[in-house]
Lab assay of single mutants.
Amino acid sequence: MQIFVKTLTGKTITLEVEPSDTIENVKAKIQDKEGIPPDQQRLIFAGKQLEDGRTLSDYNIQKESTLHLVLR
């Protein structure tokens, strides 16, 4: 499924993921596309910060959901 990741600069990254993918996994995909190390990434969905060990389905993230990427 496709999800979108919006950065603070207003750029939107499109990722191909599975509901069973972990947040860690998603961060690795963002690193592949954008070169941002996962340890600098914070992903936010519905106002919650997403934890590395959880999966997209844990957070009920469905196709075409938009996550927000904050760098630390």
Rank of each mutant, 00 (worst) to 15 (best):
H68C: 03
L69K: 00
G35I: 07
D52L: 07
Q31N: 08
L15S: 00
R54V: 08
V5E: 00
M1R: 04
G10Q: 07
S57H: 10
K27M: 14
V5K: 00
N25C: 02
L67E: 01
E51V: 03
T55R: 09
N25R: 07
E34C: 02
R42P: 01
E51G: 03
Q62I: 15
Q31G: 08
I61R: 00
S65N: 14
V26L: 05
R54C: 02
K11N: 15
E18F: 01
D39Y: 11
Q49A: 10
I30L: 12
Q2R: 08
K27R: 09
Q49Y: 09
D39A: 12
G35L: 10
I44S: 11
T7A: 15
Q49W: 05
Q49E: 15
Q41A: 14
P19Y: 10
A46Q: 06
D58K: 13
Q2W: 10
Q31I: 07
G10P: 15
F45Y: 11
A28I: 12
H68L: 07
V26S: 01
P38G: 06
Q62C: 02
M1C: 01
L50N: 00
D58T: 04
R54N: 13
D52S: 13
I61A: 02
L15H: 00
A46D: 15
V17E: 01
K33C: 02
D39L: 05
K63N: 05
I44E: 15
N60E: 07
G35R: 06
D58R: 06
E51N: 10
T14M: 14
E64D: 11
L8H: 06
T12G: 10
S65W: 06
N60A: 09
I3H: 00
K29T: 07
I44N: 15
K11V: 06
Y59N: 06
T7P: 08
T66P: 05
Q41H: 15
E16F: 07
I61F: 03
L71E: 14
L56D: 00
L69D: 00
F4K: 04
K48I: 15
L69Q: 14
A28V: 11
P37M: 12
K27A: 03
R54I: 13
G53A: 08
P19K: 15
L15D: 00
E64N: 04
D39T: 08
G35D: 04
L43G: 00
